[in-house]
C-alpha cells in the first residue's frame, strides 16, 4: 500500500487579531490507498475541519499536505477544482443534490464536467444508480426520493468519476437507523469489493466499526489513531 494522503503539522485557525480560534493544532496523518478511515470526536473537536483540509475544500493555515502525490497547497482555485473533480468524491451530510436535476442528471454532473459525452455519462450514471439499488429512480427529482435514497444518489455521484478517495462527512446524520446502516453497508461493500479508499467523519461508534482505522480528535489534536 502507498500513502494517498500525507498531512504534516496541519494547523487551521479562523478569525483575526484577538478573536482567532485555533481549530486544528498540528495534525499529522497518513492515509494509505485502500483504507477505510473514520474520523471521530466530540462536537467541536475539529473532525469536519480536518476532513475539509484533507479533501481540498479548505486550505490549512499552516502545514504540508500531499494528496495522491500532489502538493495541493500550491494549487490555485481552478486547479483545486479540477483536482477535486478528477481525484476526489464527496458525500455530504445532507445529500447536497441539485434539486432541479433528476437523480440521473445529478450523477451525470461530474462526468459531463470531465468531458464524457452525454450518452456515455448517462450510461455510467444509470450503472452507478443500479449499483446503489436505485434502479428505476433515474428520472426522480431529489424531492421525490427518501432521505436514504437521496444519500445513495450522492454516493453514486461520488463514485461515478472513479475517484481515488471518497470523503463522507457524517453521511448518516440525517438518516434513520435503517437507512444509515444501509449507507454504511454500501460504503463498506465498496471498500471491501472495490478497494475504495474512504475517509468518513462520524460520531456514531457503531458506524465506525467496519473501518480499518479510527482517528480520534480532541480539541484539534489527534489523541488516538
Amino acid at each position: 500500500m502507498s500513502a494517498l494522503i500525507e498531512a504534516r503539522n496541519i494547523h487551521r485557525k479562523f478569525g483575526k487579531g484577538d478573536l482567532i480560534t485555533h481549530v486544528l493544532k498540528g495534525i499529522d496523518v497518513t492515509i494509505e490507498e485502500g483504507e477505510f478511515v473514520a474520523i471521530m470526536g466530540k462536537s467541536g473537536a475539529g473532525k469536519s475541519t480536518l476532513m475539509y483540509q484533507l479533501s481540498v475544500l479548505d486550505t490549512p493555515t499552516e502545514g504540508e499536505l500531499l494528496v495522491n502525490d500532489t502538493d495541493v497547497l500550491t494549487l490555485n482555485e481552478r486547479e483545486a477544482t479540477d483536482f477535486r473533480l478528477q481525484t476526489l468524491g464527496y458525500v455530504f451530510q445532507d445529500y447536497a443534490l441539485v434539486p432541479d436535476l433528476s437523480a440521473q442528471e445529478n450523477v451525470m454532473m461530474p462526468l459531463l464536467m470531465r468531458g464524457d459525452d452525454w450518452q456515455e455519462s448517462k450510461d455510467t450514471a444509470n450503472r452507478m444508480l443500479d449499483n446503489v439499488g436505485l434502479e428505476g429512480k433515474y428520472p426522480n427529482l431529489p424531492g421525490e426520493l427518501s432521505g436514504g435514497e437521496q444519500q445513495r444518489v450522492a454516493v453514486a455521484r461520488a463514485l461515478a468519476g472513479q475517484p481515488k478517495i471518497i470523503f463522507a462527512d457524517e453521511p448518516t446524520a440525517n438518516l434513520d437507523s435503517i437507512s444509515g446502516t444501509q449507507i454504511i453497508d454500501l460504503l463498506t461493500c465498496l471498500h471491501r469489493e472495490e478497494g475504495q479508499t474512504i475517509v468518513m467523519v462520524t460520531h456514531e461508534p457503531e458506524y465506525a466499526e467496519p473501518c480499518d482505522r479510527i482517528i480520534y480528535l480532541e480539541d484539534g489534536q489527534i489523541v488516538q489513531k
Partner: peptide, 16 residues
C-alpha cells in the same frame, strides 16, 4: 448559495 458551493466542491467550474 449552498448548492453553488457544493457544485464547485464536486468539481463543477465557476463558469458553468
Amino acid at each position: 448559495r449552498r448548492h453553488i458551493g457544493i457544485l464547485k466542491g464536486i468539481g463543477i467550474h465557476r463558469e458553468a
